[in-house]
Nucleic acid binder design. Structure first.
Lengths: 218, 218
DNA sequence: TCAAAATTTTACCAATTGGTAAACTCACGA
DNA sequence: TCGTGAGTTTACCAATTGGTAAAATTTTGA
């Protein structure tokens, strides 16, 4: 029987599960690492427990000792991922310089895409399929944060410190243009003749968003 | 036995397959339409021949009378799709006004994403997984076209008719920011409170790319 | 009209897949 | 050192899946 209950949200304060043992920590990490590889490469439907177990160096029944099933592994992975993924957006500081805050967010997001392509692809794959296993996280975590940050951007615009842009669509543009280097990495690599996209991407996105966001001089 | 050989490239001039019958035309189209639905919703690995056959209103063996297998259906779909998908890029006219040509491309691309989300998702899914079944098409069709269009953009820049941008990365930005509305449609819908994204997206992308591309006045 | 060719159905099958039962081994605290 | 519970393995299984063989039916062209 798995140690962690399938749905954390049904927990009130369950004192029954003490701290996980060292073995638990190690094996759950091994499984999630392997699962990230497999799921991001083959998609949810194309992935098998055998492949994940194999990648983790465990037998399939052993793997199922730690997780209740394929779906639970996937959902665990996604919700952990979503936290990391939203971190840089959380850091958007209303007190900072608007243009520099947003450009810093772009840089941060691009770095993440370049350094964690598997994570980006996993998330993208879930979105592609209509987020059937993430609707809750989307509405309960991402949506409120998104609205808050849109308001900050709107306030900057109203104060004349930022060119008038449509905040939600600005964020979409930042997300899409940065994540493209991870999600469409195969295409980018093929079209750039195996040149490293990192430097060019940074320069281009900096230029694009600076021009968009710089308020017109008074 | 299927009528169309699996690999068209191995054909020299095969006079054996006459023109396809009306039944062939109809059923191949039914199959490809159903396959687009299924593949774009469930991904390659998550899709089954049963689901496609069912969607097409045919039995599975009947379906396999028209296509050699799951992979052939998928590849046929993708290569037909790629042609449609590249059309607007082909239309980029070196004789036209640079900024307006590119903005027209952006509009066209966004309209396609909004009107053909399944096609966009199918393509995105293949890219996500490293384009394992499309490498040829990528190198033989997309790459030469991409290089040609980058050169046109570079010429415009050299002539001072366009702000100095990095042509490949410009194209990546156009692709990613437009396709986002199809590929991440679930997220967009959740975050915009079911508001129609079309109008806002058009206005935002027009603004963004106009600012980026407008050459500085002399 | 009628036989040949094209199409469709019926009846399968081997391999894979997610998952389980239960026996077994190991680590650790009393 | 020994019992107990955590962790692991072996042996399995029912359902699904991609695909085939061959009979049955429909369409087509002479």
């Amino acid at each position: 029987m798995p140690i962690f209950p399938a749905s954390a949200e049904t927990l009130v304060t369950d004192a029954t599960d003490k701290k996980p043992s060292r073995i638990q920590m190690r094996n759950r990490r091994l499984i999630l690492d392997a699962a990230l590889d497999v799921f991001s490469r083959d998609g949810y439907g194309g992935s098998t427990l055998d492949a994940i177990a194999n990648g983790a160096g465990l037998s399939k029944p052993n793997l199922l000792y730690y997780f209740d099933g394929k779906k639970e592994i996937y959902v665990t992975l996604l919700s952990q991922l979503l936290e990391t993924w939203l971190d840089p957006l959380i850091e958007l500081d209303p007190e900072g310089d608007p243009v520099e805050e947003l450009l810093s967010y772009v840089r941060h997001k691009l770095d993440m895409a370049l350094e964690m392509p598997a994570e980006s692809k996993l998330f993208a794959g879930e979105m592609l399929q209509g987020a059937p296993r993430m609707a809750d996280h989307l509405n309960n975590e991402l949506k409120p944060l998104f609205d808050r940050k849109c308001q900050i951007i709107q306030d900057w615009i109203d104060a004349g410190r930022l060119a008038p842009v449509d905040p939600p669509h600005l964020i979409f543009s930042i997300w899409s243009s940065t994540q493209h280097y991870a999600d469409f990495g195969a295409q980018v690599a093929a079209l750039l003749d195996a040149k490293d996209p990192a430097q060019g991407a940074h320069a281009h996105l900096e230029q694009m968003f600076r021009r968009l966001l710089q308020p017109a001089p008074v």
